[in-house]
Computed example of a mutant assay.
Amino acid sequence: MKNPAIQNDFSYYRRTISRNRINNMHLDSESEVNNEMANRMSLFYAEATPMLKTLSDATTKFVSENKTLPIENTTDCLSTMASVCKVMLETPEYKSRFTNDETLLFCMRVMVGVIILYDHVHPVGAFAKTSKIDMKGCIKVLKEQPPNNVEGLLNALRYTTRHLNDESASKQIRTMLQVQ
């Protein structure tokens, strides 16, 4: 989401390679991406959050292919991970252990990532009142961080989740996520 120009850059690369082939200007074939791989890369980068989309698809596929495994096992694991990250970010004694800001940012990214995965896998999503994720607490923790660190994460919650605008979603959570 933070680097939307990558799709344009890759398209430019593909056009340049194609033009060079037409003009018989062969580059080192080892550094050239073959057509099939280039097509797959284009589809990957076409997503707003390509890695999160891949993880979401893989998790959804895992849940649908393993019918004998209760979906609660997966969603409980994801909600526990979100809760652990939230506690690490909001509790002063844990937070003070992190000497590097990158560690805090990593915890925030993991928390948002597992919330989005939960929302994609769980039938009613992460924003419902029955959700096992404390969404109000997670959003509050994010909003307490420096804005330049969390705006992309809040946008990920706003725009890459499935159930935020559902009837079952808490109106208070929707209000907390509104752009101001």
Rank of each mutant, 00 (worst) to 15 (best):
E36K: 15
M37C: 14
M37Y: 13
A38V: 09
N39S: 15
N39C: 14
R40W: 12
R40S: 14
M41I: 14
S42M: 15
S42T: 10
L43C: 01
L43F: 12
Y45H: 05
Y45R: 00
Y45G: 00
Y45I: 14
A46Q: 10
A46I: 08
E47G: 09
E47W: 07
E47Q: 07
A48E: 15
A48R: 13
T49C: 10
T49H: 09
T49N: 13
M51W: 10
L52A: 09
L52P: 00
L52E: 12
K53N: 06
K53D: 04
T54W: 05
L55W: 03
L55K: 05
L55N: 01
L55V: 06
S56V: 05
S56F: 02
D57K: 03
A58Q: 13
A58N: 13
T59W: 01
T59A: 15
T59E: 02
T60D: 07
T60Y: 03
T60E: 05
K61G: 07
F62G: 00
V63D: 00
V63K: 01
S64R: 09
S64K: 05
E65P: 01
N66Y: 03
K67F: 11
T68E: 08
P70R: 06
P70T: 10
I71T: 01
E72A: 09
N73G: 06
N73L: 06
T74Q: 00
T74N: 00
D76E: 08
D76R: 02
D76K: 02
C77T: 15
C77K: 04
L78W: 01
L78M: 12
L78N: 00
L78V: 03
S79Q: 03
S79I: 03
M81V: 06
A82K: 05
V84P: 02
V84H: 08
V84K: 02
C85F: 07
C85M: 01
K86D: 04
V87T: 15
V87L: 12
M88P: 08
M88Y: 11
M88C: 13
T91V: 09
T91H: 08
T91P: 05
P92H: 11
P92V: 06
P92E: 06
P92W: 12
E93Y: 14
Y94R: 04
K95T: 08
K95G: 03
S96K: 09
S96I: 02
R97N: 11
R97Y: 09
F98S: 02
T99C: 13
T99E: 14
T99S: 11
N100L: 09
N100Y: 11
N100P: 07
E102M: 06
E102T: 09
E102V: 05
L104K: 07
L104H: 00
L104M: 08
L105W: 09
F106W: 13
F106C: 11
